[in-house]
Nucleic acid binder design. Structure first.
Lengths: 333, 333
DNA sequence: CTGAAAGCGCTAACAC
DNA sequence: GTGTTAGCGCTTTCAG
């Protein structure tokens, strides 16, 4: 059943049918009704491919993230998908993994689908200060389609970034730890992404501003898995600390498990702060103080910007949101 | 840059270019090389819309789930997306919510995209024994495109189901509880989906086979949120139980929080079993015994079936996988 | 092995 | 208001 069939059955030309489909005002209400009726009776659906071919758009946006099984990204995708469809866009999901080679093919592959916009979720796509060329493939992509980064930033034409001010959030969290009397705060992270680097900067600045020295040995990296984090801490007898600032909730829970194994009372003997306000933070015991990194806010910013951009309006290339601390049982301020 | 440009630059006809793109054997190696070179030099990418129009397929499959922020579904999507792209398919993600009206528009909307197959993730799409017509919209969809159900089942032409044998898994889990000496097992669930119903059946059968009476008052329903589950149990002083079988890990964690609040020792005073083997189950303290519902297995079955089906091969319309119990600290067998 | 040409189903400019 | 028609970029007969 195509536009010709409908036109014939309704006794009009295909142009008129097309106008009805697109709700053009230049059709009399009468014929509109008639054509609509025929379309419904035959439940006709315009062929998106033909339409895409003509308009060079199928109203889809590409959502790319390293791993949709990660809670933070899943929540972002949930939010984006929900709102995008309210604007008439469907989502093509592409999980790129963390490997740079895979990412090249990922971007290449998703661009073939002629998406209207690409959103990159998670700071692992962000620019590495040292070698900007590592991210050239994204600038290349931006020549074809507007690129939106969630919690990451790349300088470039047609690239728009929304990020949580992780520096500020980390600074605040660590400062509170210090003000509550803690003196040896461990920095626990799983990556050297842009976001993780900002958190590290915030951590260091907080120590400095409190007149404390920054020790690199107090910055520990481990995969974002509860058991891995716990085991690492258990094995590092050289480390002395009375607080942990973790860049991911999973790591913080690992620290919690470590404390339990060591018979340390939380927060009496040791304070712990996580990051992302995920479900993990209320699942563990005691419940985790954690930084809310404003995922929903960033998503909203991205959607709003995208809709403007797709109408060829000027938009800001970089927007920040401030994180805030959620105080629960693993800290005692 | 389109096929005409390439043809001209390579000094061949568009038919030949098309053949090269599709790696047809009926082109001499020499011209193939030449055309390929021109394509690369101009980094030419065939227009998927035009291609879709001709072939009536854009090599995409629709992934539909109620909520991608749910860990079980996110894992399923991760697995499916990963494997589908290895077979050359991209994924359109659509989160339908739980409401039936939304689902109608969801299916309608995703079908417009002319996907090659549709996979429905989660048992909430499954057939309700009483009113089969509630699910008619899915049978209708199956007339246009093969439908694959993950952990749900609908009878019908062109509908293929892969499910965890939740009856068996629940029966086994509850039986172990009983054999370890527990006498009052609470059934804690969040829905009346097909899957939840099977779990309930397994629970009841286990009680019966152990010579115990089934009390409806021991089947409690609450939203799958840790705090909701905890608070409900705290408020129900009429309930007496020494074990909880929960149909979701989140509910089981809620039960754990309840026990803690009541100063009940787990598993000494009360045993708890969750379901799905999610990250929550290792996050809480003590760690949760839980049923592995074979999400990965089901996904693999779906992918394999789909690839056969898309080649018009006969495939089974219903495949089961058996769940198994992961014993951790909340039970003491 | 290669080319010419007829679609695929729709949009939009142009004519009436 | 409505119809005619020329693309959009590709695949696929059918000839040669």
């Amino acid at each position: 059943m195509n536009i010709y069939d409908i036109a014939e059955l309704a006794g009009v030309s295909i142009a008129t049918v097309s106008r009805v489909v697109n709700d053009s005002p230049m059709v009399s209400e009468k014929t509109k009704q008639r054509v609509r009726k025929v379309m419904e009776e035959n439940d006709y659906t315009p062929n998106v491919f033909a339409r895409g071919l003509g308009l060079n758009s199928m109203k889809t946006v590409g959502l790319m993230c390293p791993d949709i099984a990660d809670a933070y990204m899943a929540r972002a995708v949930a939010y984006l998908e929900q709102n995008l469809k309210e604007h008439g866009y469907n989502c093509i999901l592409y999980c790129s993994g963390y490997d740079i080679e895979e990412r090249h093919v990922a971007v290449h592959s998703i661009l073939q689908k002629r998406i209207d916009a690409l959103v990159l979720i998670g700071s692992s796509y962000a620019e590495d200060d040292e070698n900007s060329e590592k991210v050239e493939y994204i600038r290349e992509a931006a020549k074809q389609v507007p690129v939106f980064m969630m919690n990451g930033c790349i300088q470039g034409e047609n690239i728009y970034c929304a990020l949580c001010n992780d520096f500020q959030a980390a600074y605040m969290a660590v400062t509170e730890l210090l003000q509550s009397g803690r003196e040896e705060v461990l920095f626990l992270s799983d990556s050297h992404s842009y976001s993780a680097t900002q958190k590290l900067r915030g951590y260091k600045q907080a120590l400095k501003d409190a007149g404390l020295s920054v020790k690199d040995s107090m910055c520990v990296y481990v995969e974002n898995k509860i058991d891995k984090a716990r085991d690492l801490l258990l094995s590092r007898n050289d480390l002395m600390f009375d607080a942990v600032f973790a860049t991911e909730d999973g790591l913080a829970v690992g620290a919690l498990k470590y404390a339990k194994k060591r018979n340390l009372s939380v927060p009496r003997d040791i304070s712990i702060i996580g990051y992302n306000n995920s479900e993990l933070s209320v699942c563990c015991d005691p419940e985790l103080s954690t930084v809310d990194s404003r995922g929903d806010r960033l998503c909203k910013i991205i959607i709003d910007s995208m809709m403007l951009r797709l109408k060829n309006r000027e938009i800001r290339s970089k927007v920040y949101a401030n994180g805030f601390l959620i105080r629960r049982e693993t800290t005692d301020f």
